[in-house]
């Protein structure tokens, strides 16, 4: 990919030089991420067409505008779909009785998440980010508690992510589609929470219980940077996701 990188005279600067030397690109990237100032250097040193080339190996940026928001959603749906696909293969799920309610619930959610991921992939077409490689080494798929608490984390994260990203959407068509999907994510989050503790479907950690604040009795939201910091802990080194423009 490095052969597609090229000097850009107008933005040329010392900090960007290593970009043209493939062998040092990784070390430059680590350096650039170390401080905000250096990150700015990276951004000014790379034109749009350069970004994808660099990001392909080290990290994945979702892009700008509505495409950025949809890719952001696609990344999270990919992660969720991969998680539930692993759940279906793990000892906790395979050990459930054939008629167990939890078996039906996880089988259904796995399908929903795969459908969501496929929806975004199709909607984004050529603009879609690559297929991400997850890293679920922190999750014990043979253990009910580990699976349920991880599922709760993914679902609540997904809902908070949509809440925090809605403001970046400009095309109302995407707003409604995202709403149709996140509405089902909220239903997932509620049942997973109820499986852990009955009547915890909207505990105080997901709803702002203030009666006076501007967000009283609404779902909490998280900005992309907060969400991705968590999501990236479940992604392989080659698949770390960033959303530099969604701030």
């Amino acid at each position: 990919m490095s052969d597609t990188l090229r000097p850009n005279s107008s933005d040329d600067n010392q900090g960007a030089q290593p970009l043209y030397v493939p062998i040092k690109r990784r070390s430059f990237f680590m350096y650039a991420g170390a401080t905000a100032g250096a990150t700015a250097l990276l951004l000014t040193g790379c034109k749009d067409d350069d970004d994808s080339s660099i990001d392909a190996k080290t990290t994945v940026d979702v892009g700008v505008g509505d495409v950025g928001v949809l890719n952001y959603a696609y990344a999270l749906e990919q992660l969720e779909a991969a998680f539930y696909a692993e759940v279906l293969k793990g000892g906790y799920f395979t050990g459930l009785a054939p008629a167990a309610a939890e078996r039906q619930i996880f089988a259904d959610i796995a399908l929903h998440e795969q459908i969501h991921a496929d929806f975004f992939k199709t909607a984004l077409a050529g603009n879609a980010i690559k297929a991400l490689t997850p890293n679920f080494s922190a999750i014990n798929f043979g253990d009910r508690t580990s699976v349920l608490t991880s599922a709760r984390a993914f679902e609540d994260l997904g809902v908070a992510a949509y809440n925090g990203a809605g403001r970046f959407i400009t095309d109302p068509k995407f707003l409604v589609v995202a709403g149709k999907i996140v509405s089902v994510e909220a239903r997932h989050a509620a049942i997973i929470r109820d499986l852990i503790t009955p009547n915890s479907f909207v505990a105080n950690d997901v709803i702002d219980f203030s009666t006076t604040s501007a967000t009283a009795r609404q779902e909490r939201s998280k900005l992309p940077a907060e969400v991705l910091a968590v999501a990236n802990t479940f992604l392989a080194e080659s698949s770390k996701v960033s959303a530099k423009s969604l701030v």
């Binding site: 949509y162 809605g166 989050a189 049942i191 909207v202 779902e219």
Partner: peptide
């Protein structure tokens, strides 16, 4: 606000 309130309604419905 409306989007976030919608999600609370969805959680209610699920419950």
């Amino acid at each position: 606000v409306v989007l976030r309130t919608q999600l609370v309604e969805a959680r209610h419905a699920s419950h």
